[in-house]
Nucleic acid binder design. Sequence first.
DNA 1: GACAAGTATTGATGTTCGTCGATACAGAGT
DNA 2: ACTCTGTATCGACGAACATCAATACTTGTC
Lengths: 128, 128
Amino acid sequence: MMSVTDLVPGAERDNVSCCTPSGAHPMSAERAASLASRFRALADPNRLRLVSIISASEGSEACVCDLTEPLGLGQPTVSHHLKVLVDAGILHREKRGVWAYFSLVPGALDHLAGVLAEPQSKLAAADS
Amino acid sequence: MMSVTDLVPGAERDNVSCCTPSGAHPMSAERAASLASRFRALADPNRLRLVSIISASEGSEACVCDLTEPLGLGQPTVSHHLKVLVDAGILHREKRGVWAYFSLVPGALDHLAGVLAEPQSKLAAADS
DNA sequence: GACAAGTATTGATGTTCGTCGATACAGAGT
DNA sequence: ACTCTGTATCGACGAACATCAATACTTGTC
């Protein structure tokens, strides 16, 4: 990935009185939206708990029937949260018979971790 | 940190037909809420761009006047987003004269990255 | 084919969030 | 003190979200 330094143009204000614009550019709107949508999937306590349970389960997979009870939520709500996580590319869904098994997408959380990791947050990187 | 395996009790269902509960427990509601609130601060495209600009600025700090223009948002909106990031412990606010300078809280993003990082997501860890 | 069980979808409801305009606050200079 | 400028707060509005009850879909079993 590139470093945070690839900011957008159009901001070359020679405002002497204030701070140093440094030609500052945000990351592209597309990348920001893409990352934000994935962080939004993790921005709910119950979804974090779902990921926690799934990653702790043997084989790192669990079905809906295992997830409704420890969270104290209804089955439709759990199913909704799982869909959000699947749509975000964080969970993988595999239907075996009547049951739907959910597992972590390998590297999905790692990739987000890499985005946040130093040096000084590669938030402006170009990939994914 | 501990591993994801510290799931909550109260879920010892001997449901033979379905998956293996494995005594599955979500992470504590408190930890889930704490982490979710920080991810929620990152779950907005404009806030990600703010963090990007700030981390790319020289000295890794920037004031509001540098941030409104590249985002195309009004000053009150930018101020609001910055407050959300400060409240989440991600940004630090220092007022020098009339200007408010925002910088990354050292290690804040790193900590979140560590939560997401392998092995198999330490989402159930106990710290912070 | 009919039934049962696990799961997904739909519709509704209350809440939270992002954004803006208007306004209030704070510090610097005259 | 007054003014100017940068920043924060307030009130409002529309959109998005989390949750639930009800219902539809799907797969295995009889």
